[in-house]
Amino acid sequence: MTNNMTLIQKVLIYGILAIVLAGASYISFLYYASFSDGMRTGELIKFRHEGYFFKTWEGQLSQGLSGSQKFAFSVMDNEPEVIEQLKNNQGKFVRIEYIERYDTFLWWGDSNYYITKVQPEK
């Protein structure tokens, strides 16, 4: 009887360890891996700090006539220079550089696109 209890305990411990390891691997993958990177140019039509529980920086870039093609993006809180540049260039044409992630965390933002650099365009 004690062998069965020991076996059940081992299976339970290894099962919990496997779940924790899988969760840690998934979180590490989301944190470090990116799907693509690139640049876009357009008119910065919206940039705001929003959210109920987690306040995130969200914006939209208009790339078509009368805002018909919108590019939604997020900005990480650890990018204060990018945040300030976007605030100063709202309503103007800008070129942004971004990375696209596979998925996001609630406290990172709504979009999978994260801005890394902003330059005013003429």
Rank of each mutant, 00 (worst) to 15 (best):
E50G: 06
M76H: 09
N3D: 06
F105R: 03
V75Q: 00
I19D: 08
Y31K: 13
N3V: 13
S74V: 03
F105E: 01
I13R: 13
K87Q: 14
N78V: 03
K46A: 05
Q90L: 15
L17V: 13
W108T: 00
M76Y: 04
F105V: 01
K122E: 05
K87W: 09
M76I: 00
F35H: 09
P80D: 12
F35G: 01
F105G: 01
D37P: 05
V20W: 09
E84R: 12
D37K: 14
F93G: 03
M5H: 06
L12F: 11
V94P: 03
W108E: 03
N88I: 04
R48S: 08
E100N: 11
M39E: 10
R101N: 04
S34I: 13
W108D: 03
I99G: 09
I99C: 04
T6W: 15
R95T: 00
L12C: 11
A18K: 12
F105W: 02
N3E: 08
K117Q: 08
Y98V: 05
W57H: 04
F71C: 06
V11S: 12
L7I: 06
D37Y: 08
Y114R: 00
K55T: 01
G64S: 09
K46P: 02
F93N: 13
R40C: 02
E121T: 08
V11W: 10
S36C: 07
K92P: 05
E121I: 05
D103C: 10
F35Q: 06
I115M: 10
D103T: 06
T2Q: 08
Y32I: 12
E81M: 12
L7Y: 14
G59P: 04
E50K: 15
H49I: 10
V82S: 04
A22M: 14
F29L: 02
E58M: 15
G64M: 13
I16Q: 06
T41D: 03
S111L: 04
I96H: 07
